[in-house]
């Protein structure tokens, strides 16, 4: 077991549970190793803690729970980087941000691909005008 000092306090982790992002995040290529923090509450949000920079942690969610038609399919090159073949499972995660008014939005133009088989991840850029780095959650109809 190893430990790092984070905003969650001292975190002990098993190096074999570390998610590996071989290219880091976009513009932050020094951040290659992450931990999924255990959640205190059930829910769709998860803390991801950087191992390389203990001050860096962010929140992700499964965007398809909120945007039903959101689809990201990794291409051959991306599958190669994730270490999976065309049958390997690949999940899509979106980075969640919170405004000072406590409204949350999802970064749908820079999603993360995650391959559970290899524990590897990759941030990709979608140049699709429908998606923004701060896409607000769709409004829910109030009955």
């Amino acid at each position: 077991m190893k430990t790092i000092d984070t905003r969650f306090g001292e975190v002990e982790y098993d190096p074999s549970n570390v998610l590996h992002f071989p290219e880091g995040l976009i513009g932050l290529d020094q951040l290659k190793h992450f931990l999924v923090m255990p959640n205190k509450k059930d829910g769709p949000l998860f803390w991801i803690q950087s191992v390389d920079d203990p001050a860096f942690a962010f929140v992700v969610t499964d965007p398809t729970q909120f945007f039903f038609d959101y689809l990201v399919v990794p291409d051959t090159k991306e599958r190669e980087k994730l270490g999976i073949d065309e049958n390997g499972a690949c999940f899509i995660l979106a980075i969640v941000s919170i405004s000072p008014e406590k409204k949350i939005s999802l970064n749908l133009s820079g999603p993360l691909l995650y391959a559970p088989e290899t524990n590897r991840g990759l941030q990709v850029i979608l140049e699709d005008a429908r998606y923004s780095t701060q896409t607000p959650l769709p409004e829910i109809e109030k009955k």
């Binding site: 905003r7 976009i26 513009g27 932050l28 860096f56 929140v59 980075i95 969640v96 970064n107 820079g110």
Partner: peptide, 18 residues
């Protein structure tokens, strides 16, 4: 586009309170 995502990665990590 690259810059926007880079910046959002930083901002998204900074905005949260535990």
């Amino acid at each position: 586009v690259y810059e926007r995502i880079h910046q959002e990665n930083i901002d998204a990590a900074a905005g949260w309170d535990l």
